[in-house]
Design a binder for these strands. Structure first.
Lengths: 196, 196
DNA sequence: CCTTGTCCCGACCGATCGTTCGGTTACTCT
DNA sequence: AGAGTAACCGAACGATCGGTCGGGACAAGG
């Protein structure tokens, strides 16, 4: 028992409740009243743990962004052939999306109404650009088709991967993270058509 | 001049303004005050044209759903080999997404907080299921790989196509609808890998 | 001229928004 | 037992929410 000492809320445990409600109702569609009902404490008590609604959003998207940018620091994403690094990043993105599902879900739905949201959008663009560079290098190596524009292809691949948050649910007998990762890699690199 | 007679708002012209604001700020993040500023008329005047905020949402998602379901009624989507019908539907989905971009964008962001939103989600599921059946038939014909589960593949393909609303902008020298359609069909059926 | 109906407005409604505040409970440490 | 403090609460804040209301401006038709 390293952490179990008090059965009261910490900023972290409160965050996990809040993010779940945010994802169900949308950030703007969630009131502090909704959060207090879901957490089982009064509205004013929430302010004992966090500064306000927007801090909860900031903590959540930060966690998601840290997970995604962490991929790019891993060895397999930095050394080797571009095509293999790209495949590694794609597979790891699936793992992070599923591992940090509620946080990444919230990140991907941010619209840009507040300063926090605009900051999140900017960091997302950074990440996308870095993956696009990887794809561009793979094209230059001749390992990836060049007849589809790099930015367009990147966006479509991101669209496929990011859509996981719209339907993946970790409940018991669903599909495994490995199964989804395999499917994404197969479709991204080989498509639907039957191969030899 | 078939329609030009008064330069005042109709429910349709007001809708196009409202949908644009909804997409920028999110439906829940948009107040009637925001709409009145964007439309250039007072808040109360909006109620002369439409019953309320939710009717604007209903009109918008209806238009998007009509466009999508219309695809399935077209001849090329009903007769022929399943694989070819699937490719036709994929290409037409791209056309409808781009042609009705703001309306489809709004549809794809609906969360399910109100009755109207839940109805929209249900109709979307109907559409997805019908396309999944098409994919299943193509697998049975041996034209599409069977090593990726049909429901999983359908979701990933929808994810790629639907992501178009997140980045496609029709401004002047962007890419053409045809270009995007070609790229999607190439990636969906053949993937990123270089082919012969 | 006057009516009729469309289009629009400012003022206002009760409800709810995110947040603050003063005070109470309950646990920890000595 | 008593002090200190972390956790919590109900009540209330000003602002804003979606929506209502009575009436004014204006054009068309007689």
């Amino acid at each position: 028992m390293t952490t179990a000492k008090r059965d009261t809320y910490t900023p972290e445990t409160l965050l996990s409740v809040a993010v779940q409600v945010f994802n169900e109702r949308g950030y703007d569609g969630t009131s502090m009243e909704h959060l207090s009902k879901a957490a089982g404490i009064s509205k004013s008590s929430i302010y004992h743990h966090v500064a306000g609604k927007e801090e909860l959003l900031r903590r959540a998207v930060s966690r998601a962004l840290d997970g995604l940018f962490g991929i790019l620091d891993e060895e397999h994403a930095r050394v080797g052939h571009a095509a293999e690094r790209l495949e590694y990043v794609v597979r790891r993105m699936v793992e992070v999306l599923i591992g940090e599902l509620p946080y990444v879900t919230l990140l991907l739905r941010v619209r840009g109404n507040t300063g926090t949201e605009r900051w999140a959008l900017e960091r997302r663009r950074d990440f996308d650009h870095q993956v696009a560079e990887l794809l561009k290098a793979a094209v230059a190596d001749g390992d990836v088709r060049g007849d589809v524009e790099v930015r367009l292809a990147t966006r479509l691949v991101f669209g496929m991967i990011n859509s996981i948050v719209e339907w993946y649910r970790p409940d018991g007998r669903g599909m495994s993270e490995r199964e989804v990762g395999d499917a994404v890699v197969q479709l991204v690199f080989s498509g639907l058509r039957k191969e030899a």
